[in-house]
Design a protein around this nucleic acid. Structure first.
Length: 888
RNA sequence: GGUCGCAUAGCUCAGACGGUUAGAGCGCCUGCCUCACAUGCAGGAGGUCCCUGGUUCGAGUCCAGGUGCGACCACCA
């Protein structure tokens, strides 16, 4: 045991234990093993991902829960894997190609895909390796990837089923189009900046065909006027009655376009006249349909003006905007330009401004799928924590819109639809067809699009377990129990998983959802790679240790609140790990004195042989065990961490370990043995309680303890249960008195400037059980350097001695032996008196209110009365002392 | 525009259920290298619990309004 170094060095032990657990197969969830089971699936990180602080928090929480359940006897599965992340991954590889000076088009679709796979093989497991560094106890034998053959099979099955059910359709709609990624996006992938972005509202005159003034329209995107096929006004708007049904002239292109009446127009906004661009605006698309307006496409997929734009053809969209505004101004058709906050949407992946774009895409009808997902929450079949997220979830589902699932990418699951050039119909099939299912012609070609990444992620809980096959894993571990994830993917992923769960498995894929905090920097900004405001978790692990990081982040993340993290905070965890380490060194050092190898179990010590401190710490351990279990069961991970921190540091180390020095110094072998057993037992149990949060340091110490261990690793040792036999309220109260007394003596010592080494005599005028006070005496010696305790008459008031009143004891006096000037003592007494006088005023005021005495519960009133009496007595004593000192 | 969250020590934050002296970590001050730990030990200073009103014997905690932050949702040109 002497090999334990003075400070804990995580780097030395972490990899060793991780390999040990892995080799022993402790992470493996055996579906053939009987007993209760617990399963969760990881929110699959992007295959392009590197570990962020967000992952650290999320995975630390998952690992804590999983380790807790595993120790608690559940056959536990934590299924890991990664997401193929369509756009993100394609972007990464395209960037790589760009460095070689080529584009994906130079390679062609197949070769490009080969390159992406090669990239994935080389770099794709980075984040999972990093999760191992954190200590994540995933079942690596079950690692999945959303483009694995099995998962792809599930994707295909789901597409076909939904298509056959009529829930997948193809349609021409205005969708969000990224002109850089060259693909359609879902509503969720088109993000807005709160409050819009700074821009302009341009007022443009569209003259009447007959030479009249015509109308002035207001727009934020003047370039879209090239695609205008109408102007809409409200049918009741008196200003424009004369124009309805007539034509106005579209400036620049000088094309006549009709003025139509449409109730969707808000007369109060702008000029009350709206230009209608059916191919480039979702509202206008609808308006155009209602009035049979043509919908010319004036922009290419990469954001340049098409030939429809006449003289502007070929211009990039924002250059075109500039030119058009200038030309309008030159022609005096620009009436005015107001600054305006424009609601701009940007691509979630590359931040490019999105174009609303008319395009033929694949959609999923969501409404039928949403119903059971709503019902799940309403009926309680699905529990959402913290509860406030329920509203967000419900609101989204109640207002659900169809899901655009096709992407014009090369990386992803290809849409399993074949178009026939002979009959024009679609063939949708589970296995690749060779001929059209309608006309039998071989002239079929597969749809070019791939599916949204989330179209595979929403199947994750069951596709990873082998669905649609009825595998043993699926039977054993599905549905999963808990999902721990970040709330920012509540729509992308969580709600859709619930929908898929009901649609394909008939029940919710998990019973409980726990949304963890968002990790922010000290300025409150979300930590992100692009901002560069996040420490690299791997550096943190290297410098501070995984346990330190886990403890720090878990203890500072209350449910439902965001957490602000900075590197320095990790000291809390690091210091705690070191404290545990050194407490263990103390214990081991004191166990070395034993002759025998293995310490007896706590079971062999009869309750009657336990000392007061023994009974106290054991009693506290039971309470703490219950509290920690309850906290973990209700996702209050931070409470679990803090409870253990406070117990271990401020009760076990600060008091019990100090108290244990007395029996060790006494030389009485029986007392020593008992103390050794209790000391080791509480340490061992606390290590187990802590293990889910701090797996490495607990394992390292546990392996050194010379106690009977129920297995080869703490990670498979049973999680502690509280044992009521050790509950002892009396001992807890008594130790409370003792610590009060010690603190009081230390206070006096500090106030009058007695050096800590100076031993002192204590005189006690007892008010409590004298036998108990005598029991305390030796303990005071070690804790407060009291070399002698004298019991004096209860009513004695030795003058000139600082004193203090401690319940359970009585009045404690410290004779000064001429060490200290009586003026200092007097000052101290007067300070106390002032404090008490203030306190007594407050209590008496409370007691003098009749409504308090009448209406408050009796025990509360009694407590106040007790307090008043004690304070009054104390006041008298102090006054006496002060008088005596003044006289001398 | 709608919905939701937050406001407690210099800083970062805990304080389910209303009830002793409102806590922790960091920082600060004083004294200690006391034979587990200076990544430590002992002691201390520091709080009108955002404001106003209400409910209650009693409010940091519950209710209403206000102020200030923040998040999410929403097709208004």
């Amino acid at each position: 045991m002497s090999e334990l170094s003075k400070t804990y060095d995580p780097a030395e032990v972490e990899d060793k234990w991780y390999a040990f657990w892995d080799e022993r197969g402790y992470f493996f969830a055996d579906e053939t093993k009987p007993g209760p089971r617990f399963s969760i699936v990881i929110p699959p990180p992007n295959v392009t991902g590197v570990l962020t602080m967000g992952h650290v928090l999320n995975n630390s929480l998952q690992d804590t829960l999983v380790r807790y359940k595993r120790m608690d006897g559940f056959v536990t599965l934590w299924l890991p894997g990664t997401d193929h992340a369509g756009i993100a991954t394609q972007n990464v590889v395209e960037k790589q190609l760009a460095k070689e000076g080529i584009s994906r088009h130079d390679l062609g679709r197949e070769e490009f895909q080969r390159r992406v796979w090669a990239w994935k093989e080389k770099y794709g497991s980075t984040i999972l390796r990093q999760l191992r560094k954190l200590g994540s106890s995933c079942d690596w034998r079950r690692e999945r990837f959303t483009m694995d053959p099995g998962l792809s099979h599930a994707v295909r099955e789901v597409f076909v089923r939904l298509y056959e059910k009529g829930l997948i359709y193809r349609g021409e709609r205005i969708i969000h189009w990224c002109v850089r990624c060259l693909t359609a996006l879902s509503d969720e992938e088109a993000v807005t900046v709160e409050g819009g972005e700074s821009g302009h509202l341009w007022h443009i005159r569209y003259p009447a065909e007959d030479g009249g003034e015509g109308v002035v329209v207001a727009t934020t995107r003047p370039e879209t006027m090239l695609g205008d096929t109408g102007v809409a006004v409200h049918p009741d708007d008196p200003r424009y009655q004369h124009l309805i049904g007539k034509n106005v002239i579209l400036p620049l292109l000088k094309r006549p376009i009709p003025v139509v009446a449409d109730t969707s127009v808000d007369p109060a906004f702008g000029t009350g006249a709206v230009k209608v661009t059916p191919a480039h605006d979702a509202n206008d698309f609808e308006t155009g349909k209602r009035h049979n307006l043509p919908a010319p496409v004036i922009m290419t997929t990469d954001g340049h003006i098409t030939d429809e734009g006449g003289a502007y053809a070929g211009l990039e969209r924002f250059a075109a905007r500039k030119r058009i505004v200038a030309d309008l101004e030159a022609q005096e058709l620009l009436v005015k330009t107001d600054p305006y906050r424009v609601p701009v949407r940007r691509c979630e992946r590359c931040n490019t401004v999105i174009e609303p774009y008319m395009s033929k895409q694949w959609f999923v009808s969501m409404e039928p799928l949403a119903k059971p997902a709503l019902e799940a929450v309403r009926s309680g079949a699905l529990e959402i924590n913290p509860e406030r997220w329920i509203g967000v979830y419900v609101h989204w589902l109640e207002n659900i819109r169809d899901w655009c699932i096709s992407r014009q990418l090369w990386w992803g699951h290809r849409v399993p639809v074949w178009h026939c050039s002979t009959c024009g119909k679609e063939t949708v099939a589970r296995v690749d067809p060779t001929a059209c299912s309608h006309c039998g012609s071989a002239t079929i070609e597969q749809d070019n699009d791939v599916l949204d990444t989330w179209f595979s992620s929403w199947l994750w809980p069951f596709s990873t377990m082998g669905w649609p096959e009825e595998t043993p894993s699926l039977k054993r571990f599905y549905p999963t129990d808990t999902l721990i994830t970040a709330a920012d993917i509540i729509f992308f992923w969580v709600a859709r998983m619930v929908m898929a769960g009901y649609e394909f498995m008939g029940e919710s894929p998990f019973n409980r959802v726990c949304f963890n905090s968002i990790v922010r920097d000290m300025q409150g900004r979300k930590m992100s790679k692009s901002l560069g405001n996040s420490p690299d978790p791997l550096d943190v692990i290297e410098k501070y240790g995984a346990d330190a990081l886990r403890f720090t982040i878990i203890s500072s993340a209350p449910p439902g609140e965001d957490v602000r993290y900075s590197l320095e905070k990790t000291d809390v965890g690091r210091h705690f790990a070191n404290k545990i380490w050194n407490a263990a060194r103390f214990v081991l050092m004191n166990l070395e004195r034993r002759e025998t190898e293995v310490l007896p179990s706590i079971e062999v010590i009869s309750l009657g042989d336990l000392s007061l401190p023994d009974r106290w710490i054991l009693s506290r351990l039971q309470t703490v065990t219950n509290e920690v279990r309850q906290s973990l069961d209700t996702f209050r991970f931070n409470d679990a961490a803090m409870t253990l921190y406070a117990f271990f540091w401020h009760e076990y180390c600060d008091w019990y370990v100090e108290l244990s020095k007395l029996p060790f110094a006494s030389g009485a072998q029986e007392r020593i043995t008992t103390t050794q057993v209790v000391l080791a037992h509480v340490l061992e149990q606390t290590l187990r309680l802590l293990h889910p949060i701090m797996p490495f340091v607990t394992e390292e110490i546990w392996q050194h303890l010379p106690v009977t261990r129920p297995g080869d690793s703490i990670m498979v040792a049973p999680y502690p249960q509280s044992d009521d036999r050790y509950r002892d309220a009396g001992a807890e109260e008594a130790i409370g008195h003792l610590t009060d007394a010690v603190r009081a003596i230390r206070n006096i010592r500090s106030d009058i400037g007695l050096p800590p080494q100076t031993e002192l005599t204590l005189r006690i005028a007892p008010r409590g059980d004298v036998a108990r006070i005598e029991e305390f005496t030796p303990l005071l010696k070690v804790l407060a350097r009291v070399d002698k305790v004298e019991l004096i008459d209860t009513n004695a008031h030795p003058s000139g001695e600082p004193s203090t009143l401690v319940s359970g004891f009585g009045e404690l006096f410290v004779p000064l032996k001429g060490l200290v000037d009586s003026a200092e003592v007097r000052a101290r007494l007067e300070k106390d008196l002032a404090k008490i006088t203030k306190e007594i005023g407050a209590v008496e005021a409370k007691l003098s209110r009749p409504d308090f005495v009448d209406k408050a519960p009796a025990d509360i009133v009694d407590k106040e009365k007790q307090k008043a009496a004690t304070l009054r007595e104390r006041t008298l004593t102090l006054q006496k002392h002060i008088a005596a000192l003044s006289a001398s």
